[in-house]
Amino acid sequence: MKFNWKPYILTLIVLLILFPFVYMVLLSLASEWRFPDLLPSYFGLRNWLKIIGSETGLLHSFLISVSISLSVATVSTLSGFFISRSVSYHPKKRVLTLLTYFPYILAPVVFAACLSYFFLRMGLFGNATGVIVAQFMITFPYALIFFSSFWNQRTKNLEDLVATLGGNQLQTFFKMLFPIAKGMLLICFFQTFLISWFEYGLTSIIGVGKVQTLTIKVFLFIKEANFYYGALSCCLLIFPPVVLLYLNKRYVFNKLV
């Protein structure tokens, strides 16, 4: 009889995937965990309770991160949707699409370092507005590329049909294009939210440490060798994307395929 090793490998894969999540939660609950102890000497909710007291400013960072990511995701999804139409129907679509790739592919931190002079001149250095604008510059090309497949011949034919039946531009957008693009709009929103939520390098350059998003906080705690608060920040950083992934998969992706 042939030995079936698949269940063991699958179990190992599941454990490897879940391990970081479990480890981060455990580390966030621990303190005074010194080498060579395999388990911490304190294990409880002390670190988490400190957040509620806002002693570390983590709650504030969480709220800033949520506000920045929601703003970036909303603006880039809507602008990407509208502007990608102009790009996709343009006779020079190939060249325009290629131009879109350049800011998308460049390391955001290098892009931010080269742009920082302009942000300084415009008074956008070291504040949340500047970080939103800078992050928008990298999520916007993503949204453009994402929506380029939506504007195909079928969509154009539908637009022409609405025009033939007497519909105006606004009616075309609100009664035809938005309903059929609803799923893609939601996925793009989630993706751009995640790009913004995960961003560190660009935020550190444009925010100059004054805009303390969660990713900045994680680095600060690591530099201070405060690994328990670092893990706690990581938990706050991981769980919103997990919820988004679940919603994305449960309510959006499954209905699209």
Binding site: P20, Y23, M24, Y200, I222, C234, L237, I238, L245
Partner: peptide
């Protein structure tokens, strides 16, 4: 499993680096 295999996408680079440091550093 079809949901679990999506979970690693929720881990940003900063967290992954921190996790590697926590596991593989000398302490």
């Amino acid at each position: 499993l079809s949901f679990i295999i999506y979970l690693p996408l929720a881990i940003p680079g900063v967290v992954a680096a921190f996790f590697t440091f926590q596991l593989f550093s000398r302490a």
